[in-house]
């Protein structure tokens, strides 16, 4: 095992982990607030990937050429529209179930996931789509001979940087704004928060909007980096991001990011040095192992049993 390969695998893991983390945030926030696993979240990410490609093509047709401007505009537009999708999804499929059993929204989320997949398949076709390469070029580190180097593309750097910025902003927002405080209050005790005058419906809507925009950031960045997507991509990555959220401690924001990074690193290191076939088996075994010893995940608060 050479040093370059190890560093390269760590880089791969960090990039993948950032993507998992961004999507895991959506799971963890929704779970923290209403205690529900939003299985349609992966498909929100898929919607974001399609919107990215569509806005990119539209803006290019309008004559915008400069890549930084394009990236910024596409990112903002995608976030806005994906957030709208997140909001409507909550209104249609989850809000009517607010006061029923906890498992009912789970099934309606699975239904929603089917709806979104099929909606995109019918409107955009089943074939896989792509975007042109917008961010080109890469840097080579530690170069030492023809095979000995660590190569990082600018797109990968963009993913990690944007993920860090996005998460920091979100963290700041949760910690320091009135709405963020309301969110935390609802997370701790929904009924109490409502009694103290917090508009819980609004908080829940805001959480869905934020979760969807984070998924949109991930969708846009991934589309710029990998350039390929189809209507089914939300499924695999959704399960992985959910795993990351639980690994970090579901309900905890830093936990989601940490869980994402751990999962990403674990996958790429295992895949790189042991076996790619069993990479996912390893990822899930890691989850089971961590939960056996820390039943609330890495950063989750231990559950308080109330009598």
């Amino acid at each position: 095992m050479s040093f370059h390969i190890l560093v390269q695998q760590v880089v791969n893991g960090l990039v993948l982990g950032s993507v998992y983390g961004l999507i895991a945030v959506g799971y963890t926030m929704v779970y923290g607030i209403i205690g529900m696993i939003n299985f349609a979240h992966g498909d929100v990410y898929m919607i974001a990937a399609y919107l990215t490609a569509i806005f990119l093509a539209a803006l290019t047709l309008l004559g915008i050429q400069s890549p930084p401007l394009l990236i910024l505009l596409v990112l903002l537009l995608t976030m806005a529209f994906t957030a709208l999708y997140g909001w409507s999804m909550e209104r249609i499929a989850y809000k009517p179930l607010r006061h029923s059993t906890r498992l009912a929204p789970l099934i309606s989320a699975i239904g929603m996931s089917l709806i979104l997949q099929n909606y995109v398949r019918l409107s955009q076709g089943a074939r896989s789509q792509g975007t042109p390469t917008l961010i080109q070029g890469s840097v080579r580190l530690f170069e030492n001979g023809p095979d000995q180097f660590v190569q990082i593309t600018y797109a990968q750097i963009l993913i990690v940087v944007t993920a860090v910025i996005g998460m920091s902003l979100l963290w700041y927002w949760i910690q320091s704004t009135a709405m963020g405080r309301a969110c935390r209050a609802v997370q701790q005790d929904r009924i109490m928060a409502a009694l103290l005058g917090v508009d819980t419906d609004r908080v829940i809507s805001v959480v869905f909007v934020l979760g969807a925009s984070m998924a949109a950031v991930a969708g846009t960045l991934v589309t710029f980096n990998y350039g390929s997507f189809d209507f089914f991509i939300g499924f695999v990555i959704g399960i992985k991001a959910f795993t990351a959220a639980v690994l970090g401690g579901i309900g905890s924001l830093p936990g989601a990011m940490l869980g994402g990074l751990v999962l990403g690193l674990a996958e790429s290191i295992f895949s790189g040095f042991v076996n790619t076939d069993y990479k996912d088996v390893f990822a899930f075994s890691l989850l089971v192992g961590v939960l056996i010893f820390r039943p609330s995940g890495l950063l989750g608060r231990p559950e308080v049993e109330k009598v």
């Binding site: 791969n12 893991g13 990998y226 390929s228 997507f229 790429s268 290191i269 895949s271 790619t276």
Partner: peptide, 22 residues
């Protein structure tokens, strides 16, 4: 001789492995 997972898009780890086996 290895298999990747259908539906995923990130194969960087596998690519690095290809590099490591030259």
């Amino acid at each position: 001789y290895e298999g990747l997972t259908r539906g995923e898009k990130d194969f960087n780890a596998l690519v690095t492995k290809l590099r490591s086996v030259k």
